[in-house]
Design a protein around this nucleic acid. Structure first.
Lengths: 262, 262
DNA sequence: CGAGGAATTGAGTAGGTTCAAGGCCGGTGG
DNA sequence: CCACCGGCCTTGAACCTACTCAATTCCTCG
């Protein structure tokens, strides 16, 4: 099993493999996509609200977030982007991004050209399906966030976000058991959860008292993930952490045929 | 300009035409998709959390919503589905839906088979682009909801949702100026906005006092949409209500060539 | 005309915010 | 090696927005 520094295999391949088994050719393509990375420092801006979208991108190392800045200086974090996240597959269809993306820690990003995206969609059905699935996973995370912000109290919200972060890092081999590196400040967490940093602090205090988590030196461990998941109110099929339905598998195998011989 | 009863032209065609001009053939395909509709009464369930996804679908008439039921009986409404909304393009890749869809008023839905979806994606690039765009629009709405629930107070949230509903219905020719039919109860609005029905009521009272809206007999009119939009804090490019970038247009025209001769 | 859901109103409460001050910790420069 | 600095975390007290509970009125529809 992989180590904890994010170097263990390609995180994108690891993530998509949860959904469907990838051929050697597909893996090659994915690794090729991530070959030319761009590096950003901590707290850097990758793009901003209003910018023309350039292309899709993959996070290969580090941690970033999508967010919407508000006129009064506050912000709402929409999603965190971890290694293996393939985003904005179709952003080239838009004239302007409606949100910004910035890094939390030093981060590497590989940009993907429009032509490559379309080539995959048109000629690599199985790979395209895997990318669609990862888009749907991102949409599922947005829906879960809405439920959390709309109908859960602060304790549940914090529990939910910590669980999500751990689960996602488990999926790419960046978690040790239920423990991850968590370089987010309490203020970052608050901006994601619609709370204030002060209140996030008090909730985390309670979680520590209750032996639910340990969090020190930027390392988070879920000590009692059963209780945390219950507190978070997450359903078992969250993140669609299961593979493709059998019918769809057969279907894509058939579609692959014409292209396998190229 | 179309009338107010939702019969004026095909709402799906109207919606996608905002994004790109559609060929007669594409319009024909879209209208064909909506030919076989299924009818549901008010308060009916279209599918439920946990169900295996059947296929994509288009709402042709009525009003429905996606929502997540909570264990304690409450719920969070995620999005409202109005005529012309094409949803779940790729849902066939999942084993189980993570949310439910139910109707508010009598509603008609056209189911779209997986094979038809894939045929469009592979052979009708321009139409596929339009459908991707509508998916991105739905994702943009989810992000906007997160911002509203996370960082805005009750007044702004209500203003935002009313504006969104009016804008969307304008886009499909179902609005008269700034006036729409609004069959939602205050409880529905509350479930979408993370508030209680009682508080939604008080906010709406204030809006009426302040001459911002009129709302009676299920008819909403924005009396001062400038102030409402400001209160809602919406950005001008919300809903990506603008057409495809020129570069993308050329690109898809090229892709169309091989298929135009079929 | 009656019934039931929806809207409205009031009073008390609570979860989370705001403001402000102090403490910790890691990094930097002398 | 040590002292300083700045960002982050922590804690307390007052406050406020929105919730809860409950009763009443209004509408719509059969």
């Amino acid at each position: 099993m992989p180590a904890t520094d994010g170097r263990a295999g390609d995180p994108l391949v690891a993530k998509l493999s949860q959904f469907t088994s990838l051929s050697a050719a597909d893996v090659g393509i994915l690794e090729g996509l991530c070959a030319r990375e761009e590096r950003f420092g901590a707290g850097a801006s990758i793009f901003e609200e209003g910018d023309a979208p350039r292309s899709a991108f993959v996070v290969t190392r580090g941690l970033a977030c999508r967010y919407r800045p508000l006129p009064d200086g506050r912000r709402q974090i929409l999603t965190f982007l971890i290694p293996g996240d393939f985003s904005d597959l179709h952003a080239f269809l838009l004239k302007a991004m409606d949100h910004s993306v910035g890094t939390i820690i030093p981060t590497r990003i590989a940009a993907i050209e429009r032509d490559i995206v379309l080539d995959i969609v048109l000629h690599r059905p199985r790979l395209a399906a895997a990318l669609w699935w990862s888009e749907m996973q991102e949409a599922a995370m947005l829906r879960e966030r809405i439920v959390a912000l709309g109908r859960r109290n602060a304790r549940s919200r914090v529990a939910y976000l910590l669980c999500e972060l751990v689960w996602r890092q488990q999926a790419i081999g960046m978690a040790e058991d239920h423990s991850i590196r968590l370089p987010l400040t309490q203020s970052d967490l608050a901006d994601a959860l619609g709370l204030t940093a002060v209140h996030v602090n008090r909730v985390l205090q309670r979680f520590r008292e209750d032996q639910l988590i340990s969090l020190e030196r930027r390392r988070l461990t879920l000590l009692n993930f059963v209780r945390l998941e219950a507190l978070a109110g997450l359903t078992s099929n969250y993140l669609q952490l299961n593979s493709m339905p059998a019918g769809a598998v057969r279907y894509f195998d058939d579609l692959e045929q014409p292209y396998r011989r190229r």
